[in-house]
Computed example of a mutant assay.
Amino acid sequence: MSDRINARLSKPLADHVNSMVGSDALYETPSEYIRSLIRRDMEGELSQVYSSIMEGFTDIKESRTIKSSGSWKKDKELFKQKQFQNWE
């Protein structure tokens, strides 16, 4: 199953897409180029999520944790204070 998405592009954007498409270009069709861009965007998002998870594991390993107050806003402030105080 696929959905069709139509998009209106300004001339500079359309010119760029057209330069990326054709027999002498990297992509055969505009759709192929757009799908490639979307996949790269999705991979970038996954990479950021993975990086954040690994940073959290490192914080736990290094005992850079706080006891939650139950309030995201308060916890965020406490976390910043602890960072500023070099976790002392």
Score class of each variant (00 low, 15 high):
1 M>K: 10
2 S>P: 07
2 S>H: 09
3 D>W: 05
4 R>P: 08
4 R>D: 13
5 I>W: 09
6 N>D: 15
6 N>Q: 15
7 A>M: 13
8 R>A: 12
9 L>I: 04
9 L>V: 08
9 L>A: 08
10 S>I: 13
11 K>I: 09
11 K>N: 03
12 P>N: 14
12 P>F: 10
13 L>G: 01
13 L>S: 14
13 L>P: 00
13 L>A: 11
16 H>K: 02
16 H>M: 15
16 H>A: 09
17 V>P: 04
17 V>K: 05
17 V>I: 14
17 V>Y: 06
19 S>H: 09
20 M>K: 15
20 M>H: 00
21 V>P: 05
21 V>N: 02
22 G>W: 04
22 G>D: 10
24 D>A: 13
25 A>R: 07
26 L>H: 15
26 L>R: 15
26 L>W: 13
26 L>A: 13
27 Y>F: 15
27 Y>K: 09
27 Y>W: 09
27 Y>M: 03
28 E>N: 07
28 E>F: 07
29 T>M: 04
29 T>W: 09
30 P>V: 05
31 S>L: 00
31 S>E: 08
32 E>D: 12
32 E>N: 08
32 E>S: 10
33 Y>A: 14
33 Y>K: 14
33 Y>C: 15
34 I>F: 14
34 I>Y: 10
35 R>H: 03
36 S>M: 07
36 S>N: 05
36 S>A: 11
37 L>Y: 00
37 L>S: 05
38 I>P: 01
38 I>N: 04
38 I>A: 02
38 I>C: 00
39 R>Y: 07
39 R>S: 10
39 R>T: 09
39 R>N: 10
40 R>S: 01
40 R>C: 02
40 R>P: 00
42 M>K: 10
42 M>V: 15
44 G>H: 03
44 G>S: 06
45 E>P: 01
46 L>A: 04
46 L>T: 02
46 L>C: 06
48 Q>G: 05
50 Y>C: 04
51 S>R: 11
51 S>K: 12
51 S>A: 14
51 S>T: 03
52 S>H: 14
52 S>C: 14
52 S>L: 15
53 I>W: 04
53 I>R: 07
53 I>C: 07
54 M>T: 11
55 E>F: 09
55 E>C: 06
55 E>M: 05
56 G>E: 02
56 G>I: 04
56 G>T: 01
56 G>R: 13
56 G>H: 02
57 F>C: 11
58 T>H: 11
58 T>D: 15
58 T>E: 15
60 I>D: 08
61 K>T: 05
61 K>I: 00
61 K>H: 07
62 E>P: 08
63 S>M: 02
63 S>Y: 10
64 R>L: 11
64 R>Q: 11
66 I>V: 14
66 I>P: 07
67 K>H: 03
67 K>L: 12
69 S>F: 06
70 G>P: 06
71 S>H: 07
72 W>M: 03
73 K>M: 14
76 K>L: 04
76 K>S: 06
76 K>M: 01
76 K>C: 06
76 K>F: 11
76 K>T: 00
77 E>C: 00
77 E>K: 03
77 E>W: 01
79 F>M: 10
79 F>T: 12
80 K>E: 07
80 K>I: 12
81 Q>C: 00
82 K>R: 15
82 K>N: 08
84 F>W: 03
84 F>P: 01
84 F>A: 09
85 Q>I: 06
85 Q>M: 09
85 Q>N: 11
86 N>Q: 03
86 N>R: 08
88 E>S: 12
88 E>A: 14
